[in-house]
């Protein structure tokens, strides 16, 4: 092999390696960029669960100019856990139109453990609370006359704080959606016709 041929082959190999490296680097950057956009590569921050007492519960159940949906649940409650993914979807659907909060009845010791862990697994973005009432009976009475303490319990208040709908047990999503839509379109409500 002549020196010229060796030099040509070497130059070709160098160009090939350079192009390949540049291409791989570009792909890696694009992938990283996409990940950043999708949020997949960034670990989710565990949700902060705030503690509520009776006074805090009263405040939390006061609508702030929008209908307020509240779900009472606990990590030890099977039907609560079962319905949670649907509630998370509902939150995404109605974001901005209503306020939606969740109130856990777990032990206070779970406020930084199982409760945020479950909410994180569910990718729940609703403001989350844990109720540690001085008196459960008083707390239940504040929520609704239709509530006897059985979980799950979901209640919808209109913007004025009046109870519009409640469900003892697992929510039927189509019913809840219908109730929300009815509340968000008052002119189509039979009461206003």
């Amino acid at each position: 092999m002549s020196f010229v041929r060796i030099a040509k082959s070497g130059a070709f190999a160098a160009v090939f390696v350079f192009c390949l490296s540049a291409s791989m680097l570009g792909q890696a950057k694009t992938a990283a960029g996409n990940s950043a956009v999708a949020g997949a590569a960034i670990p989710r921050k565990p949700p902060v669960v705030k503690q509520l007492n009776i006074a805090g519960l009263r405040k939390a159940l006061t609508p702030a100019g929008k209908p307020l949906l509240v779900n009472f649940w606990a990590t030890w409650c099977d039907p609560c856990r079962e319905e949670f993914p649907d509630l998370v979807k509902l939150d995404a659907e109605y974001k901005g139109k209503i306020d939606f909060i969740t109130i856990s009845l777990d032990e206070l010791s779970e406020i930084a453990r199982d409760v945020p862990k479950f909410l994180s697994e569910m990718k729940a973005e609703m403001p989350a609370y844990l109720l540690k009432a001085e008196d459960d009976d008083a707390a239940i009475t504040i929520v609704s006359k239709d509530f006897a303490g059985a979980l799950p319990f979901t209640i919808l208040y209109d913007a004025s704080g009046k109870q519009a709908y409640f469900r003892q047990g697992k929510v039927k999503m189509e019913t809840l959606r219908a109730e929300l839509d009815k509340l968000l379109s008052p002119t189509t409500s039979p009461a206003n016709k």
Binding site: F72, A74, C77, P79, L105, D136, D137, I140, T141, F147, A148, G149, A150, L151, P152, F153, Q168, G169
Partner: peptide, 11 residues
């Protein structure tokens, strides 16, 4: 009469 939190009766 007094209420307390618990499990729902599965009807």
């Amino acid at each position: 009469r007094a209420n307390a939190f618990g499990c729902s009766i599965k009807r």
